[in-house]
């Protein structure tokens, strides 16, 4: 079991190293990530949303539906935890007791 796990993990590691070889230089201002989409957000965030913090501008203005989905996920997780861990009432059948 341990040997199989080790072989799998080392093969994944080799693939990762192969991928890192192709990455652009770390922190390069001319890399594709920093030249393609993000300058538009950085330049327009203040004028369109009047928020100095660009992260919160994107989080709550450009992607507010995404944030709403995130709260739905957290709510569902909380409901699931409560339903799984509540004390069973008398006469109610359930797991573990």
């Amino acid at each position: 079991m341990k040997v199989v796990a080790l072989i799998t993990v080392l093969m994944t590691g080799a693939l990762l190293v192969y991928g890192i070889e192709e990455m652009p230089e770390w922190g390069d201002p001319n890399s594709p990530a920093s030249t393609h989409v993000s300058p538009k957000y950085i330049q327009e965030a203040l004028g369109k949303t009047a928020t100095p913090n660009m992260v919160t501008a994107v989080l709550a203005d450009y992607r507010s539906y995404d944030t709403m989905g995130e709260t739905v996920v957290v709510f569902t997780a909380a409901i699931g935890c409560v339903l799984m861990l509540r004390k069973k009432r008398k006469g109610e059948k359930g797991e573990g007791d």
């Binding site: 989409v37 950085i42 994107v58 992607r63």
Partner: peptide
């Protein structure tokens, strides 16, 4: 006029916050 080279990229930060 905001120079994009003066600030880090905010998009990965937002996604990782989620």
């Amino acid at each position: 006029i905001i120079d994009a080279a003066h600030y880090f990229i905010p998009l990965p930060h937002v996604l990782m916050l989620t």
